[in-house]
Design a protein around this nucleic acid. Structure first.
Lengths: 201, 201
DNA sequence: ATATTTATTTACCGATTGGTATTTAATTAT
DNA sequence: ATAATTAAATACCAATCGGTAAATAAATAT
């Protein structure tokens, strides 16, 4: 049963919006917001500009919708890691899954939220701030998880949840750069192994 | 005595090339290669395009020259860190100086070598690869320093210099993203303190 | 004084940028 | 059948992109 009831009125859309969004996501992921041109987008999606604008708004809206799809799709592993039983397990799962994800050859290397708009021109200012907030939001999730761990005596009393969260976020962001620069999964996993030695006991 | 003997023949250049290069460096540093437009460059340098092209070649050459100035100027602290007497001191100095440098309000936040061209369009491909090589080169310097430390029994025999180097490089690259996203020097220094706990003894 | 050399200025180039108005095609409602 | 609705295709827009040709200005060499 793949059917969808559609009693839409006018001419039916000839392309699948989710498929198109996935293709757009891949381009933004690889090129960044500014580096992805409308020409490359429309060519890859197989539609022309007016169709893209009618369906998604404009380039910025398209990016935001691709970003939402990214956050709820490929990056779902973060929330999984967060629900591990102990703080150490959370950190370990987060870093290991990140190392695997960032170097996965099934999709562009690195993290779109980290690199989608880092150093960029004025035209990317809005997107840049969206991504900054998103990164801060993930870091906050980690910090809150570690605050809980402290209450549960799962972390020493002198451990600082914010520092721990920033440590993981920084490693993740660094690994994103590493992956984009050619680092392999194995290299990152070895490094993660070392990084976990800093974890408080 | 700030005099320079100059018996140049034709009309003398009216701007100082080093000053201009510094201004260009600042723009590339903040905007990245693609995000920095010729318009913004010429406007900030106070010269017009033909002068810029006559003096520096083209945009790509200008970037490379600004990059060289960056590497031999602001980023000289890396070589200083490398000459600390012990491996631990090298790591500590490298991370502490990086945290201070990346958040210094005297210049753009973050590291130009990390963020100058990360996710970008085709037009930045050459520059992107130049920066990838540069990052690898710094990581190699660290690895070699830690190989020496091992020989000097300054690191345990089971320590892996390449892993240690990648650990520091990853933290540095992550801190660059953090600094660009608003992290303060204090936050990063606290995190560095935590990160150093992973160091082998 | 004149020729030569080099830099600056002005004006321009084709290509590409993100974005749209207009026309045409395909569907449902009446 | 016809009107209404929605999407696709073509053709276009001003603005900006990196880059340059041609003319002018300021210095030195002869």
């Amino acid at each position: 049963m793949t059917t969808e009831l559609k009693k839409s009125r006018g001419r039916p859309r000839v392309f699948d919006m989710d498929e198109a969004l996935d293709k757009a996501l891949n381009i933004f992921w690889e090129r960044g917001y500014e580096g992805a041109s409308l020409a490359e987008l429309t060519e890859t999606l197989g539609i022309n500009k007016p169709s893209l604008y009618a369906a998604f708004g404009n380039k910025e809206e398209l990016f935001k919708k691709a970003l939402l799809r990214y956050a709820t799709g490929p990056v779902a592993f973060v929330k999984v890691a967060m629900s591990e039983p102990t703080a150490y397990k959370v950190a370990q799962t987060f870093l290991v899954k990140a190392a695997e994800f960032l170097t996965d050859s099934q999709h562009p290397k690195g993290c779109m939220i980290v690199q989608g708009a880092l150093s960029s021109g004025e035209s990317a200012e809005v997107v840049r701030n969206v991504l900054i907030k998103q990164r801060a939001s993930y870091e906050n999730l980690l910090a809150e998880r570690f605050m809980r761990a402290k209450i549960e005596s799962d972390l020493p009393s002198d451990a600082n949840p914010k520092d721990l969260a920033k440590y993981l976020a920084t490693l993740h962001q660094g690994m994103s750069v590493q992956a984009t620069s050619g680092a392999t999964k194995e290299e990152l996993l070895e490094m993660v192994n070392l990084a976990l030695k800093a974890w408080p006991k």
